[in-house]
Amino acid sequence: MAIIITDECINCDACISECPNNAIYEPGEEWSYSDETALSGNVSLPSDGSEVDADAQNDPISDEFYFIVPEKCTECKGFHDEPQCASVCPVDCCVPDEAHQESEEELLTKKAWLHGE
């Protein structure tokens, strides 16, 4: 499953540099699948096969606190033993996202998709 940042976030910026997938964004920031990944142009999402423009700017998920794009979050599988955002968060607001449950295999597939492996 992906990680989500709760509304308890104090916008400290500790998590953003820890994410190997560039899945964490500042409040109000637009995001794209191609940000710091190998993706470009039209791509198929590994979760459901739907097509998206990896370079398109998407609306922010939150205007109030940092947010994680679930389609880019791999819980750091293939990089680290635990989600790095959760390990550095001073207020423990990086928690499992019950709405986006994925197996380790699915997370590793997503990692390969994001990084062209």
Rank of each mutant, 00 (worst) to 15 (best):
A2C: 09
I3L: 15
I4G: 02
I4P: 01
I5V: 10
T6I: 12
C9N: 08
I10V: 13
C12H: 11
C15W: 15
C15P: 02
C15M: 13
S17D: 10
S17E: 14
S17R: 15
E18N: 10
P20C: 12
N21P: 00
N21G: 03
N22A: 15
A23V: 03
A23H: 05
I24N: 04
Y25P: 00
E26L: 13
W31A: 07
W31I: 05
S32D: 03
S34M: 04
S34G: 05
T37H: 13
A38K: 15
L39C: 06
L39M: 09
G41V: 06
G41H: 05
V43P: 02
V43Y: 08
S44G: 04
L45Y: 11
S47R: 15
D48I: 06
E51Y: 06
E51P: 00
V52C: 02
D53T: 01
A54L: 04
A56D: 08
A56M: 06
A56C: 02
Q57N: 05
D59V: 02
P60W: 14
I61K: 12
I61H: 09
I61A: 09
F65W: 14
Y66L: 03
V69G: 04
P70K: 11
E71F: 06
E71T: 01
E71A: 06
K72A: 04
E75Y: 12
C76V: 01
C76A: 09
C76H: 02
K77H: 09
K77S: 04
H80C: 02
D81H: 06
D81Y: 08
E82H: 11
E82Q: 11
Q84G: 07
Q84Y: 10
S87Y: 07
S87W: 11
S87D: 13
V88N: 10
P90D: 15
P90Y: 15
V91G: 02
V91N: 08
D92T: 06
C93T: 10
E98P: 00
A99Y: 11
Q101G: 05
S103I: 03
E104I: 14
E104W: 04
E105K: 10
L107H: 11
L108M: 12
T109H: 04
T109M: 07
K110H: 06
K110F: 03
K111S: 03
K111A: 07
L114I: 01
G116D: 13
